[in-house]
Each structure stands twice: as structure tokens, then as C-alpha cells.
Design a protein around this nucleic acid. Structure first.
Length: 485
RNA sequence: GGUCCCUUCGUCUAUCGGUUAGGACAUCUGGUUUUCAACCAGGGAAGAGGGGUUCGACUCCCCUAGGGACUGCCA
């Protein structure tokens, strides 16, 4: 049997970081088993679905390298098929028409909520109220589930799934384990609305079946939905897929991710935080899944090792410090031109001169190993921008005293005399200068660094000189060098 | 209110009845050093609480606490 997985987001916004991880698991499992990974856009809610959201989600998936096999299926195009299945279910007795109006259902919920509020406020309820509330809170059972009860003439109806009267349903989930619920605790969900359109519960099952999905891997907020959807498979006599409900991702505070306070949308990780997709894959994979003590896991290894049973049940918290360290690893490995292009696309890069940009381009191989992400790369590149005249403050100013100024002045001619402006040659010249004057590196290094970088983070001093280029380097030194009186 | 799920260092996790409870990130100390980063050496840091079962429990069972999901003619 060929494994088929799918990722089925509803296009109401952006690609959620938790969704991205779920997609990663689906993608990995399909790859691991030599199967297919399909995409489906659950756009049955016309009010909330937008094309912009579809594009944003697909864009996010592509960025992460999690494209689907084949074109995404638009659920809205399949409404006819969904309805067809609903009617077949009615024919088979697994579903029935129900004329209870939406307002009546809403009134039940409102009354239940009012009683709950009253109980919370007053501490207790009368026996009658308590009984009424318990009854209201029980799964709704329509009088029309009885096939003998005649439908009122001309009344609009919904199609409801029929739950068995007794017994329980057991789900064997790769993550959640074996869990049972009795049918009495399950509501008889609406399959077809009174306007004839399908609901999500129906659409998911029909599409999964028709698309040949063998493994449903989704967020565990859907776990209880499984119990409501399974009877549809049973009613149609379809083989049910295997389920894996993965826990949601929480924020650093342990609470559910909230857009207001957390980075939730995947494009934020790319555009604002400056992370690499391969680092995101590695980090996300390790959030809730592990392979012994392995931390840095390549895509090839991930595909080889990934296994549904290795997933954890508990939600994991996002840790940006760890993400940084993973990303740092991949930054160092990344192609120079690629890293440069990513940096150059950022708004901070736009304001720089051609000169500054060229310096950074030449230095990118060194810079990329020093930063945790593309934003940090900008920090590491600061010393290469036109920061003259360099303001010396605090520790840097202390380093550049009269004695140091004189040394800098003395160092200059030797540097100016170099015909080859490269790091090793510069390094040699500084070493020669030190030994010729009988001083250690410590007597010239700190001051030289101070006047060259103003205290900004920077690599080895000879490399700094090389990367700045002779003109800029000399200018920065001259700004502070002063021959001894 | 009901049903279901979760709980190991600060964080992600290993452990699948017998370990000095391991690793990673972070942190602290020391070293190296011209800054930062890196690197090297070392340290501290955990089984939510309470009951059982067992020769033996982080691991199995129960209760409590805390957290979460579902309970829509939303998805």
C-alpha cells in the first residue's frame, strides 16, 4: 500500500508555525515511506476564505520546501461530491434529515451557558436547574433520528449523522494511543446544512477518502473530531485511515500561541526574524520528536529516521535561543551568495552605499559564521559600513591614549607600504611591527581595533583591515593616529 | 457541567520496571584571545504532589493539583 499523507489548512490567514510543523511531519512521513504528500485547501467557509490566504500558505510551504505532490485540491470545488455522499449516507440509514432550526439549537446553547454563568456566580443551582443544565449540555439528539417520525411538510432540513445508540468507539492513534469514547457522548453532527452545502466534518472525510489518504497527521485539536468522523467511514463502508494527532506548539510562556505576543506566522520567521528554511525544518522536527541524542539532523537523515511513533504527546514550547543556535549552524554551511542575497533583500541593506554593500559582499563568508540569523548578520556587518568618524567612548576611548596614538602613527607607514593587501600579509606586517618595537600584540591590538571598529563586533584584526580595504582602513587609523610630540 | 488528553533540568528531549536519570540549547566558572563570536576544560540544574502494585517505579494503577482539546448549520 502506498502511503498518502496530506496537509489541509483552511485559508483564513497565514501559515501557522504549528501547521508548518504538521506539514513537515506529513511530508517527512510520505518521503520516508516513498509515498505521496498532498495539499488540500479547506475553503468551504466562503466568508473567511481568501485567495490571499491561499497564496500566503502555499508560499510559506514552498519556502520551507514542503511543496505537495501535484496541484492542491480546492475543497470548495467538491461540494457536489460531498452532498452525494451525504445523501448516500441517508439512503443507508447512517444519516437522517433533521428539521430542527438553527435558532432552536442556538437557544439551547444560550440557555446552557446562562445556567453555567449563574452557577459560577452564585455557587450553586437548584436541583431543577442543575438537571436542566446537564440535559442541555448533553450531546443533542434530534427527535427525527427516529425513522418512524414523519418530517414536517416543506420544512428545510439538515442532514445529520446518526450515532449508534449504545457502545463505544475506539481509536488507535500513533501519538495519542488507544482511546475510547462512548457513542452517547458524541453529538450527531450536521453533514449538510439546510442550504445543502457540506460542512467541514463531511468534506474532510470524503476528500481524504477520495484522495486516497492513508495517514491523517494533524493537530491534536482535531483528536476528538476523529470520533465524530469515523462513523462516516463506517456508514460508507470505507477503510479508515491511520491517525496521528500531534500536539500543538506553545509559546515560550507555555501558553497557546497568540498572534499578539508570539511569532505565529511562518513568514515572520523568514521576513522579520531572518531564519533559514533548513534550520526551521530541523528545529521544528525536534520539537516533539527525537531520535536519540541527535540534534542536527539533515533532511536525508530526517527522512530515513522519521517515524510516527516517535512523536510526543505533550505540547512543546518555542525557544528562540535554541532556534538561533540551530540556525547559526546552517548559516555557516550556507552558500555565500545565498546568504548575501538574503541579507541584501532586507530593508536595512537598502540604505547602504555601493561601496558598503561591496565590502559586505566580500566579507559574507566570514560574517555568516558569526551571526545566528540574517538579522544578526546585519549587526556583524556594522563595522564595514561608513561609520567614520568613529566615536570612541568608554573602554574604547581608554585604549586610545597618547601612547597608543603614537604607535598607530608608527604602524601606518608599514601598512601603507604593503603591495599585497591581504589578511596574511597584513598579519605578518603587524607581527613584524610588534617585534621590531619590542612590544606584544596587546600593546597595539586593542587601540587598533578601537579606531577601526569603534567597539562593534568584528573578526580578527588583520581580517578587519583586509575587509575594510586600504583606503577606509588607513582613513580610520589616521583619524586617531598622532605622531609623538 | 461533561468527555478526552498532557505533566523528566530554565527550554527541547533520552529512558520503554533495575542508569551515578543521558544529550542539546541556555547558564555559571576557568582557559585561550586584539573585541565579539568560536573553541577547550569543568560546574550547577529534573521525574507536579499524594497514595498504591512490586524485591525494585520516572516508567504500571488510583486520587489531587496545574495545563490543554472538544462540546457550532466555523474549520
Amino acid at each position: 500500500m502506498t502511503v498518502v499523507t496530506r496537509f489541509a489548512p483552511s485559508p483564513t490567514g497565514y501559515l501557522h508555525i504549528g501547521g508548518a510543523r504538521t506539514a513537515l511531519f506529513c511530508w517527512l512521513y510520505a518521503r520516508a515511506k516513498g509515498g505521496k504528500f498532498l495539499l488540500r485547501i479547506e475553503d468551504t467557509d466562503k466568508e473567511r476564505s481568501t485567495q490571499a490566504a491561499v497564496d500566503a500558505i502555499l508560499d510559506g510551504l514552498n519556502w520551507l520546501g514542503l511543496g505537495g505532490d501535484g496541484e492542491p485540491v480546492l475543497q470548495s470545488t467538491r461540494a457536489g461530491r460531498h452532498a452525494e455522499v451525504a445523501h448516500e449516507l441517508v439512503k443507508r440509514g447512517a444519516a437522517y434529515h433533521c428539521p430542527v432550526p438553527a435558532e432552536e439549537l442556538q437557544a439551547r446553547r444560550d440557555e446552557a451557558e446562562a445556567l453555567q454563568k449563574k452557577k459560577a456566580a452564585e455557587g450553586s443551582l437548584s436541583d431543577a436547574e442543575q438537571a436542566r443544565m446537564a440535559d442541555l449540555l448533553k450531546p443533542f439528539r434530534s427527535p427525527w433520528r427516529d425513522p418512524a417520525k414523519a418530517l414536517p411538510e416543506g420544512a428545510p432540513t439538515v442532514v445529520r449523522l446518526r450515532m449508534p445508540d449504545a457502545g463505544e468507539l475506539t481509536v488507535s492513534d500513533h501519538v495519542q494511543g488507544t482511546v475510547s469514547r462512548s457513542y452517547a457522548d458524541l453529538d450527531e453532527l450536521i453533514l449538510l446544512r439546510s442550504d445543502g452545502t457540506p460542512t467541514y466534518m463531511l468534506a474532510v472525510v470524503v476528500d481524504d477518502h477520495d484522495m486516497g489518504v492513508t495517514h491523517v497527521i494533524r493537530g491534536d485539536d482535531h483528536f476528538l473530531n476523529t470520533f465524530r468522523q469515523l462513523p462516516i467511514y463506517h456508514g460508507m463502508g470505507w477503510a479508515q485511515p491511520e491517525y496521528s494527532h500531534v500536539p500543538l506548539i506553545h509559546g515560550p510562556d507555555g501558553k497557546k500561541l497568540a498572534k499578539r505576543t508570539n511569532a505565529v506566522a511562518v513568514d515572520v520567521y523568514r521576513d522579520e526574524l531572518g531564519y533559514l528554511p533548513e534550520a526551521m525544518r530541523n528545529y521544528l522536527l525536534r520539537l516533539g520528536w527525537s531520535h536519540g541524542d541527535d540534534e542536527i539532523i539533515s533532511d536525508a537523515q530526517a527522512i530515513e529516521w522519521f517515524d510516527l511513533d516517535g512523536l510526543n504527546k505533550a505540547p512543546a514550547r518555542l525557544d528562540f535561543v535554541k532556534l538561533d543556535s540551530v540556525n547559526k549552524h546552517y548559516m555557516a554551511l550556507a552558500d555565500d551568495q545565498r546568504v548575501f542575497d538574503l541579507w541584501a533583500a532586507r530593508p536595512e541593506a537598502a540604505g547602504l552605499s555601493a561601496d558598503e554593500t561591496a565590502r559586505i559582499r566580500d566579507a559574507i563568508g566570514h560574517l555568516k559564521t558569526r551571526a545566528a540569523n540574517i538579522v544578526g548578520l546585519g549587526e556583524q556587518a556594522k563595522f564595514l559600513t561608513n561609520i567614520r568618524p568613529i566615536q570612541l567612548s568608554g573602554k574604547a576611548a581608554d585604549q586610545v591614549n597618547a601612547e597608543a596614538k603614537a604607535r598607530l602613527a608608527a604602524l601606518l607607514p608599514g601598512l601603507e607600504g604593503l603591495t599585497d593587501w591581504s589578511e596574511p600579509v597584513i598579519k605578518d606586517e603587524i607581527a613584524r611591527f610588534c617585534s621590531a618595537n619590542g612590544i606584544g600584540m596587546g600593546k597595539i591590538g586593542p587601540a587598533l581595533r578601537a579606531v577601526l571598529t569603534g567597539g562593534a563586533p568584528a573578526p580578527d584584526i588583520a581580517l578587519v583591515l583586509a575587509l575594510l580595504g586600504r583606503n577606509e582602513a588607513f582613513a580610520r587609523i589616521r583619524d586617531h593616529a598622532q605622531a609623538a610630540a
